[in-house]
Amino acid sequence: MTLKFLGIIPNTPDTDSPTIWLDQETGDLLIQSYRATEEEVKACREIGSIPGHSTDVPDHETIVRLPKVMLQYIPKPDSE
């Protein structure tokens, strides 16, 4: 795996630092951020996604809260 650092919230303390990396082999993003609260997870389950799709969060997945300021580090598709 070859990772490329994309960004971190500026001026964060060294113990509270949402960060984004790009896996240069797959194009996947790896995101370190705040774990969603139980209330936020409950709201996501209530809204759901597409009809017939489970609203449960599998053990191998999680919901994270990505601060708005971090959106600037998400790469645009090559076509843009």
Rank of each mutant, 00 (worst) to 15 (best):
I20S: 02
I9H: 00
L71Q: 10
I63N: 02
Q32D: 15
I63W: 08
D28V: 07
K76L: 12
D28P: 04
P67A: 00
Q72N: 06
L71V: 06
Q32F: 15
T2D: 11
S17I: 06
P51A: 00
G52T: 03
D59H: 13
G52L: 02
Q72F: 05
F5A: 06
P67C: 02
P10C: 08
P77N: 09
R45K: 13
L66R: 02
V64I: 15
T2S: 13
P13C: 06
G27V: 04
E61C: 12
T19I: 00
K42T: 13
S54G: 05
H53L: 14
T62W: 07
N11T: 13
G7A: 03
P18N: 02
I9K: 03
D14P: 13
L30F: 14
R35F: 13
K4H: 07
Y73N: 01
D56M: 08
H60T: 14
G48F: 04
P10E: 12
T15I: 10
P67H: 06
K76D: 06
E46C: 05
M70G: 03
G52D: 03
I31T: 03
E39F: 04
M70F: 00
E80R: 15
A43K: 04
E61M: 12
N11G: 10
Q24S: 13
D16T: 07
P51C: 00
S79W: 11
P77K: 09
V64Y: 10
S49K: 13
P67M: 03
R45C: 05
D28F: 11
S33W: 09
L22R: 10
H60D: 15
I8P: 00
M1K: 15
L6E: 01
M1N: 13
Q32M: 15
S17G: 07
H60L: 11
T37Q: 04
T62D: 12
I20W: 02
R35S: 13
G52K: 00
I50L: 14
T62C: 11
F5L: 09
E61I: 03
S49T: 12
I9P: 02
E80M: 15
P18V: 02
T12N: 09
L29Y: 06
I47L: 07
V64A: 12
L30G: 11
T19N: 01
D28I: 08
D78F: 13
I50M: 10
S49N: 08
L29I: 06
D59C: 11
W21V: 05
F5W: 10
P75W: 03
R35A: 14
T15N: 14
R65F: 11
